[in-house]
């Protein structure tokens, strides 16, 4: 039986194998042996080569067959996860300039309002409360120096 491998899994396998090849290529420029023992490049080269082989082998030999019980997870549309990932990345990008509180607040608000379409008032309240609790616990109690925004928190 010929398996049809989903495009996404092909990309994932390529990421694994590509990382392996890249590692092997960089490691090839490092010293391999020093005196009695392997030097700094030996194991990275080995790992890289192994990963390149295993990445390809796992993709083609072991791709989960279509139509089994876990179908739901594999066939789920990619739009929403990508949107969530985007919101997360935007929030992280904002931490240094807008401060932890504001960046996380806006990021959560976006997820509640735009992605999940939840009521406005509750969304604002839950986002603000969550960001506040995290700021108090990590920054005030545990002394973690979260970046502050131009308004000082």
């Amino acid at each position: 039986m010929r398996l049809k491998i989903p495009a996404g899994e092909l990309v994932l396998g390529a990421v694994f194998a590509g990382t392996g090849l890249f590692w092997a290529a960089v490691a090839a420029g490092l010293p391999m042996w020093d005196g009695f023992a392997p030097a700094t490049g030996f194991l990275p080269l080995t790992y890289g080569a192994l990963l390149a082989i295993l990445g390809i082998a796992a993709t083609f030999a072991d791709a989960a067959p279509a139509g089994d019980a876990t179908d739901e997870r594999r066939e789920a549309p990619m739009g929403r996860p990508l949107l969530i990932l985007l919101a997360l990345a935007a929030g992280v990008a904002g931490i240094e300039s807008a401060g932890f509180f504001a960046a996380m607040f806006l990021s959560m608000l976006f997820l509640f309002r735009v992605v999940e379409r939840l009521p406005l008032v509750s969304s604002v309240a839950v986002s603000a409360a969550s960001a506040l609790v995290l700021t108090v616990v990590f920054r005030t109690w545990l002394g973690v120096p979260f970046p502050a925004g131009p308004w000082g928190f």
Binding site: I84, G91, V92, M108, F112, V126, F138, V144
Partner: peptide, 20 residues
């Protein structure tokens, strides 16, 4: 849908706090 945005914020706060 109410739970996961704060979970993400917690992940960010926690990972940041490990080495600032």
């Amino acid at each position: 849908s109410w739970l996961y945005p704060p979970i993400l914020a917690l992940c960010v706060a926690g990972v940041y706090s490990q080495a600032n």
